[in-house]
Amino acid sequence: MDNAIKTVLILDDEKFVRQSFADFFEDRLWHTLQAESAEQALDILETASPHAAIVDVRLPGMNGDAFIRRAFNKKPKMIFTVCTGSTDYILPEDLSILPTVCSDVFFKPVSNMAEMESCLLRMMSALETTED
């Protein structure tokens, strides 16, 4: 597994939530990129190539699901995990079958963010293994 520093894109319109994720991941030596809307996140992806993204679903403008669909086309190796405050959210089927989308959805408040990190790392290593 590549031990180089990884980058995670955090997409959430709630500033404090976003910041709490950023703080957590930075402490764990990740590079973090933040976007408060899907459109902004897509702009970021024009110039940067993060390894993973934490995506909120209810967003102003484009929603999280649509973002993942677009982003996957651009970055087929990027890992996505959904984190939402809507307790009745179910991952759409077209997304759940993508190899880069984490099948576990995290509901806010995330009581154990370490679990989210390990989920991302697991996905990334699994993807690398299949490529080898």
């Binding site: 709630e14 404090f16 939530v17 806010k108 408040p109």
Partner: peptide, 8 residues
Amino acid sequence: NNPLAGIM
């Protein structure tokens, strides 16, 4: 849930 996430 959103503000709660911020807090927790």
